[in-house]
Simulated scan of single mutants.
Amino acid sequence: MSQDLLKTPLHALHIEMGAKMVPFAGYDMPVQYELGVRKEHIHCREHAGLFDVSHMGQLKLHGENAAKALEALVPVDIVDLPEGKQRYALFTNEQGGLMDDLMVTNFGDHLFVVVNAACKEQDIAHLKDNLPSDVELEEIEDRALLALQGPKAADVLSTLNPVVADMVFMDAAKVELAGIECLVSRSGYTGEDGYEISVPADKAEEFARRLLLKEEVEWIGLGARDSLRLECGLCLYGHDIDPTTTPVEASLLWAISKPRRADGERSGGFPGADIILDQIATKDVSRKRVGLVGSSKAPVREGAKLFDADDNEIGIVTSGTFGPTKGQPVAMGYVKTELAAMGTEVFAEVRGKKLPMTVEKMPFVPQRYYRG
Rank of each mutant, 00 (worst) to 15 (best):
residue 200 P to G: 09
residue 217 V to G: 04
residue 180 I to A: 03
residue 209 R to E: 08
residue 193 D to W: 10
residue 228 L to E: 09
residue 212 L to H: 04
residue 176 E to F: 03
residue 218 E to V: 11
residue 222 L to T: 08
residue 224 A to P: 00
residue 181 E to G: 07
residue 206 E to V: 12
residue 193 D to N: 15
residue 222 L to N: 07
residue 166 D to P: 06
residue 213 L to E: 15
residue 218 E to H: 14
residue 228 L to K: 03
residue 196 E to F: 10
residue 172 A to M: 05
residue 187 S to G: 13
residue 176 E to D: 12
residue 199 V to E: 05
residue 215 E to A: 12
residue 204 A to D: 05
residue 217 V to Y: 03
residue 225 R to F: 04
residue 224 A to W: 02
residue 214 K to L: 12
residue 178 A to G: 11
residue 208 A to T: 10
residue 209 R to N: 10
residue 221 G to M: 03
residue 207 F to N: 07
residue 187 S to L: 10
residue 199 V to C: 05
residue 219 W to S: 07
residue 167 M to V: 02
residue 195 Y to A: 07
residue 195 Y to M: 04
residue 219 W to A: 06
residue 205 E to A: 10
residue 198 S to Q: 12
residue 217 V to T: 00
residue 183 L to I: 13
residue 201 A to K: 02
residue 219 W to C: 13
residue 199 V to W: 05
residue 210 R to L: 09
residue 177 L to M: 08
residue 204 A to Y: 09
residue 210 R to I: 13
residue 206 E to G: 14
residue 181 E to R: 07
residue 201 A to P: 04
residue 228 L to T: 02
residue 173 A to E: 06
residue 172 A to C: 14
residue 208 A to F: 06
residue 168 V to A: 11
residue 175 V to A: 08
residue 171 D to G: 07
residue 166 D to K: 12
residue 189 Y to Q: 06
residue 195 Y to S: 00
residue 165 A to K: 03
residue 202 D to I: 04
residue 204 A to F: 01
residue 220 I to H: 08
residue 214 K to P: 04
residue 196 E to L: 00
residue 223 G to P: 02
residue 198 S to H: 15
residue 208 A to R: 10
residue 176 E to G: 13
residue 163 V to Q: 14
residue 216 E to Y: 05
residue 184 V to T: 09
residue 223 G to R: 02
residue 166 D to M: 09
residue 199 V to T: 11
residue 201 A to Q: 06
residue 183 L to F: 12
residue 193 D to G: 08
residue 219 W to N: 08
residue 195 Y to P: 04
residue 175 V to K: 07
residue 201 A to M: 04
residue 173 A to F: 00
residue 177 L to Q: 15
residue 214 K to M: 14
residue 168 V to N: 11
residue 216 E to K: 03
residue 167 M to Q: 06
residue 172 A to F: 02
residue 191 G to D: 12
residue 200 P to K: 08
residue 228 L to R: 01
residue 190 T to C: 01
residue 176 E to R: 15
residue 180 I to S: 01
residue 194 G to N: 07
residue 213 L to V: 05
residue 173 A to Y: 08
residue 187 S to R: 10
residue 195 Y to Q: 05
residue 192 E to R: 01
residue 219 W to L: 15
residue 179 G to R: 06
residue 181 E to D: 14
residue 175 V to F: 09
residue 184 V to K: 02
residue 189 Y to N: 13
residue 173 A to N: 15
residue 205 E to P: 01
residue 189 Y to F: 15
residue 217 V to I: 02
residue 198 S to A: 15
residue 187 S to T: 14
residue 225 R to K: 08
residue 198 S to I: 10
residue 194 G to L: 00
residue 172 A to P: 02
residue 169 F to H: 12
residue 179 G to F: 02
residue 185 S to N: 11
residue 221 G to Y: 09
residue 227 S to M: 01
residue 182 C to P: 00
residue 185 S to P: 11
residue 191 G to T: 10
residue 170 M to G: 03
residue 225 R to S: 01
residue 225 R to V: 00
residue 188 G to S: 13
residue 182 C to E: 08
residue 165 A to P: 04
residue 169 F to I: 00
residue 215 E to K: 15
residue 212 L to I: 09
